[in-house]
Amino acid sequence: MDRMLYIAMNGAKQNMLAQTANTNNLANVSTTGFRADFAGFRSMPVFGLGHPTRAYAMAERPGIDLNPGGLNTTGNPLDIAVDGDGYIAVQAKDGSEAFTRAGNLRLTSTGLLINASGVPVMGDAGPISLPPANAVEIAKDGTVSIIPQGQPATDIQVVGRIKLVNPPASEIYKGNDGLLRLKSGEIPVANANVNLVSGALEMSNVNIAEALVNMINSAREFELHVKLMKTADEHAEREMQFVRLG
């Protein structure tokens, strides 16, 4: 059997994986704070006797797109977005600390501030916990102040500060739960220069035009690989015709 068939099959299979990554980006075009994934291909030549004339392809996710998404002003005081560079530190479901750009916060019955993924926002020492309050306000530097329940509107108390971080872009990767972490595994320190905007949400940074063109491109490449597989099949049939007796 001509080995061209296996290379074409490998191309088609890796192409389908890249299509999956691309469709994931498209599906998350309205998700708050979503960072688009890049799908890359790497060439894997086969080394054996003679020259490495066969090269397989491998699809991988080399990184994520850290460009800012659009800003949607909602007017909701608990919606926060990072103005410029920076991230909001959260506590992931497994207890480790991660960071994200999604700031669609709400209060739970126990006083935790959680975002839409259900992860609580970190303060200076652990997740921020608020006493029962009539109104909550989040300032530009992350300071959370409340009007406690049962107090007049002039009694504003500062109850904590959201931890905001700004690690270098080259160290960031996206974990399996969609939260961002550092490749070295260390926890980033709080950065006082990160500013928040209250009443706004950062939308997904998926570039729709690019995602659709990627889809068209991948679809045509897939057709090309399938065509190669058909060609390999025809070659094999011709070979059989030569050696068929009678």
């Binding site: 570039n207 035009a209 690019e210 491109n217 490449e221």
Partner: peptide, 17 residues
């Protein structure tokens, strides 16, 4: 694969902006 696809994509992005 085809340059025209990527050139057209830049046009779409520019008009969106």
């Amino acid at each position: 694969m085809a340059q025209a696809l990527w050139v057209g994509k830049t046009g779409l992005e520019a008009q969106q902006n």
